[in-house]
Amino acid sequence: MAKKKKITAEDIISFYMNYVLENEKQPSSVYKFSKSNNFDEAIFYNFFNSFETLEKEVFNAFYNYTIKALEADKAYLDFNNRTKLLSFYYTFFEMLTANRSYVVYALSKHKNKLKYVGILSKLKESFTNYITHLEIETIDLKQEKLEKIQQKTLNESAWIQLLITIKFWLDDTSSSFEKTDIFIEKSVNTTFDLLDTKPLQSIIDLGKFIYKEKINMNL
């Protein structure tokens, strides 16, 4: 049988997910894996340099499919940041649920220490980039260095929140994972409530005013 030539990264990811679900282990070699799926080994290396790299891309693919689905909905572009992030969460976890058997397999050894799982590093990179581009309103510190630190802190906090939600979803035994949906709504809304900068900005502005007036009165 002639070997397949038109193989995409998505095809290889699909082959890999099917293999580990059927065999409950990683393929023993790229050669055997490629041969069993009827394509040249070299094609694998056009996209990935190892199975470990491929595993990272699986979770990044879930992210990419999520973004593609969101951007296909014209209404999404007009959502405010809170609604956009909620939409991301709901769509992303629908994607995870559709592939739950694989996700549980891939994360089973790291269930209680997801923060340190290298398999999620590509997902973290993409997700924190997504958070940055949401341009969530933060306090105007008027110093570029401090604002960069503030954005980095926001990105890390958002990432930790996503990890906590993944952990909650992994442990969720409710019908249709309805408890995860509730957790998503409450956690995202709480985060945005805490990020509401208007009251805090007003306090900062008042403090600056009082400080300035006190200095002037002492002159």
Rank of each mutant, 00 (worst) to 15 (best):
I203Y: 13
K3C: 03
L96N: 03
I131S: 08
K84C: 05
F79E: 08
K198G: 04
N99V: 00
V117A: 13
F192Y: 12
Q151W: 03
F183P: 04
Y65P: 01
F48Y: 13
F92D: 02
N112S: 07
S157L: 14
V188D: 03
T8P: 04
L163E: 04
E57D: 03
A69R: 13
K214A: 15
N60F: 04
S126T: 05
A158F: 15
Y130A: 02
L86N: 05
F88P: 02
Y31V: 05
L70C: 10
L195M: 09
E125S: 10
F44C: 07
M217D: 10
E144S: 14
L170R: 05
E41L: 02
D11V: 02
T191W: 06
F47K: 08
A2V: 11
I13Q: 01
N46E: 14
E178W: 11
A2S: 13
S50A: 11
L70A: 08
M1W: 07
K111E: 11
E94Q: 15
N129V: 01
K113W: 10
Y102M: 04
I43Q: 09
E10D: 09
N46Y: 12
W169V: 03
T128F: 04
S29I: 02
T97K: 15
M95V: 05
S174Q: 06
K124E: 14
R100Y: 11
V117N: 12
D11P: 04
I215V: 15
W159V: 00
S126M: 02
N99H: 08
A72G: 14
Y16D: 00
I131N: 04
D78Q: 12
Q150C: 06
G207E: 08
R100S: 11
L54E: 00
N64D: 08
F209D: 13
D205T: 06
V58W: 00
E10G: 00
K214D: 14
N23R: 04
S108D: 14
T190S: 13
K111T: 10
I164H: 09
V188I: 15
S28D: 11
T66Q: 05
E52Q: 11
V104S: 05
Y19P: 01
F168C: 00
F48Q: 06
F92V: 02
Y45I: 00
G207V: 06
L77I: 07
F209A: 12
I166W: 08
N37P: 11
L70K: 10
N38P: 05
N129S: 09
H133E: 10
D171A: 14
K74L: 15
L123K: 03
E94I: 15
Q26I: 15
A2Y: 15
F33K: 03
Q143N: 13
V104R: 07
N81W: 11
T197K: 12
F88M: 02
K111Q: 11
F39M: 02
W169Y: 02
K113Y: 12
F92K: 07
Y130C: 04
T165A: 10
K122E: 12
E71N: 14
T53S: 15
S121T: 06
K208A: 14
A98S: 12
P27I: 13
E57I: 01
